[in-house]
Design a protein around this nucleic acid. Structure first.
Lengths: 252, 252
DNA sequence: CCTGTACGCAGTACATTGTACATCGTACGG
DNA sequence: CCGTACGATGTACAATGTACTGCGTACAGG
């Protein structure tokens, strides 16, 4: 099961698809029953509703009423389809204009936009973008987010590093939240039930003398969040730390 | 391809394996040719050398000179095997004693220990620990890392949140670094070659008027790191931001 | 109008995965 | 000395991405 990754296909073909470089309709042959956009939309629908694991070529084809192999006349393969899905998702992101606002508000807005992206498309958090899909969606997103950090006195390299750091935090958080939801679904146990199932067993082997801090802090954290992982708290706390981490660079 | 996840199996059985609750040898039947530890070691070796994708039950069995199904007499399934692998890796982590050192040094040491873990076991970064393997390795790790943050005036809930934030950063960084390496291997192109392949094609469609910041900052960042993603810089910069983010909470 | 050809669509097929199931053989307790 | 419990084996299945092979369609040139 390879990790899902963008830009795993042929660069030229992928870029052509991303920028729709060839609107030149082929006159020969039977009429096309679908469009690339329709395939991307269907695939996104599957991934949104049932996760990346459920995103199979067979499933997308079924939703479109065609046989699996038909998809391959629109898209070179699953890797390129993922690129198209992600760039399209980027393209659809709302981009609030926060020009003139304090920098913390501007960066908070960027974080929120990304959080909303992952809320709408949880699968997007799981995709590795070591080599991003170089499409119009990513470009618009990058330009917009750089603007939120521009003019604060940071040099370009630091500016890029700050943006990467912020986006890495939001993505890591989204992954953790999605993983928690997935674990809950797969095990048919919520966090509380899971701890209730493990706690007594763990207590039998766990030497409280050996792990005093773990027991004390673990209990406190568990009690504070109702015994469960609390994504909301992790996000709020983490974003605060990230912004405080930027302050020395920006405020001087 | 489900996301790799810990604690996906039966809690009771998993905990028993993790804590080796039943050293009671069964007298009946043929002698056991292997041990659970041998299976875990072999599996870790495969994952270390060739990544999680290459970690298949067949492959581990082959390395051990047995038929795939034999593994199932030692381990309930692949999910539990992953738990054992991860907890064992946690158990083997060196834990430096930094008592008395300044808090930044102590947290830097924790970060370094985790970075070393992911350097030795890149697959560990990819495993979701939404529900961690509750074994002796994790407990020792948790206790040790809490100690690095204890006594700084943080309440227990904040202490736990800070540790989570730090570990999330290191893991996210390790994932990015591993993804970059994997992309390089799979595509047989390093970052520079990839950009050389995509750059000219991208230039044809990319309107520089439309994305001035992206072009400017992208060029600057690319030039600074030799045209490639620079994990070392991302780690150093990111860890600095994380620690600066804690400063207001700790230094007051 | 007619026909050749290029191309969209469909069906079959294969390698790879985790693991359920049934079978076989071993070696200790009585 | 032998029954039985249990470890090891081999076969089998469902799901996946996608290569390959046809089949039929519909436009271009005559």
């Amino acid at each position: 099961m390879p990790t899902e990754r963008t830009s795993a296909g042929d660069p030229a073909r992928t870029l052509q698809l991303l920028w729709q470089d060839s609107p030149a309709d082929r006159p020969k042959g039977p009429r096309r029953g679908l469009t690339v956009a329709a395939v991307v939309t269907a695939a996104t629908g599957v991934a949104d509703a049932e996760g990346l694991d459920a995103l199979t070529m067979r499933r997308v084809a079924k939703d479109l009423g065609v046989v699996p192999m038909t998809l391959y006349t629109y898209v070179p393969g699953k890797a390129e389809l993922l690129d198209l899905m992600l760039d399209a998702a980027y393209r659809r992101m709302p981009r609030a204009d926060t020009a003139g606002a304090p920098w913390r508000d501007r960066l908070t807005a960027v974080a929120e936009e990304n959080r909303a992206l992952y809320a709408r498309h949880p699968w997007a958090a799981a995709v590795s973008t070591a080599r991003p899909p170089l499409g119009p969606g990513l470009m618009a997103k990058y330009e917009h987010e750089l603007a939120a950090l521009d003019g604060l006195g940071l040099d370009d390299v630091t500016l890029d590093a700050c943006l990467t750091h912020l986006l890495t935090f939001v993505q890591a958080w989204a992954r953790a939240a999605a993983d928690a939801r997935a674990a809950e679904q797969d095990s048919a146990m919520d966090d509380r039930q899971w701890w209730e199932a493990n706690g007594p067993l763990l207590a039998r082997v766990l030497d409280e003398e050996a792990y005093p801090l773990a027991v004390r802090v673990g209990a406190a954290a568990g009690a504070a969040h109702g015994g469960a992982y609390d994504p909301e708290h992790a996000y709020t706390f983490g974003l605060g730390r990230v912004l405080d981490g930027f302050a020395p660079l920006i405020d001087g």
